[in-house]
Computed example of a mutant assay.
Amino acid sequence: MHALASWNADPVRAFKEFVSTTAFAETGRRLRADGTMRALSAESAKIYVFMFANVASWILEQGLTFSTVTQADLVRFIDRTVKGKRVLNSKIAYRYLRLLERCYEHLEVAPNPAQQAILGIDRAHMTKDEAGRTLSEDQLERFFAALPAEAPRRRNSTPFDGWKRRRDRAMQVVIALAGLRVSEAIGLLIPEVGRQVSIDGSIMLTITPDEKHDTSHEHTITLPREGVDELRPWLQERETMAIPGQFVFPANLTGARMTRKTVYVQMRATFERAGMDLSRSGGRTLRNTFAKRQLDNGASADELKDVLGLALERSAADYQLTRVKPDPTN
């Protein structure tokens, strides 16, 4: 009872003390081949603490304590929505409940509310709720190699023939190397492209909500030299063609806005030329790949939130939680 009282008084502190113990490892039942417990990595511990802090904050907001939370309360937590969309997909929700189940198991709370909530999850639906896929470095190179190529010159061709291929090529490179949503790419405006080139050849993109999806938040992101080498020639060609408007990647010569469907079709074609039959061969796969590369380079959830233009750090933490391995079948 004394232990449970400390979890009620300061649940985050109690969990931090718990997560570093062998007792936590035992609840996970993760054994090596020789029967000894697997040590919890510092990165995993950090993610677990972040997850638990999310739950603890929500429990406090509801006027509850760790010991008074019920199965129904936990179901409400995982079923939360923002603008009609669930905050947690079912796989992430399951991981939250599994973490809480381990805590209540350690405290010998019966019945275990998290365990009861897990039993109520539609597991059939959960298996269909795949985490975002990513590309390996080799697959990403194959994607770049399969980008729209210059069309063969015809006898009566003009210098601007095939401009849409060059537009699509530049757009897909920017999406992949800057981690943009498709809505952010088609809504990218010329004033948002930095003019100053850094020593390493990169430039800054300032993404604003203007002309974009309402979930886009203003943020800046570095476009590396490889992306600049594709984007700048396209911008020069666009200027020479005197296409009106401010869209970096216009749909036509009148400067209209591209549609998501058009981008999806062109991107799908690139994946097919690369010989990759991914079920999510689109902008989300490229954005996930960008996020994974950021994490592999040591970015924290807060830093990832900033470069992806996310409103909440917990959204960035979802990328840490999935950390999906590249699709091995392609």
Rank of each mutant, 00 (worst) to 15 (best):
D306C: 08
W7Q: 03
L223Q: 02
R142G: 15
I175E: 00
L295M: 15
E218D: 04
A14E: 10
K292L: 12
R314V: 06
T215P: 04
I92R: 11
R30S: 12
I47E: 09
G63K: 06
R30G: 09
E237M: 06
I78D: 12
R102H: 14
V49G: 03
I199D: 13
V109H: 04
V248M: 05
E313A: 14
L4C: 07
T285Y: 00
T222W: 07
F15M: 01
A299Q: 10
L88E: 02
E101N: 10
D229H: 15
A14N: 12
L64T: 05
R80N: 03
E101G: 10
G35A: 03
F18G: 00
R268N: 14
R273D: 12
S20M: 03
P209L: 14
R287K: 08
R29Y: 14
H125N: 06
R86C: 04
D129G: 12
R273K: 15
N252D: 15
G132E: 11
S198V: 03
K91F: 00
N8Y: 09
S41D: 02
G179V: 06
M37C: 07
A14P: 10
G179H: 06
R155D: 12
A110C: 11
M1D: 10
G298T: 12
G201I: 01
R293D: 10
I243C: 05
M1F: 07
F52H: 05
N330S: 09
F143K: 01
A178M: 00
R293F: 08
I221W: 01
A170G: 02
L60C: 07
M258Y: 03
F144K: 03
Y319C: 03
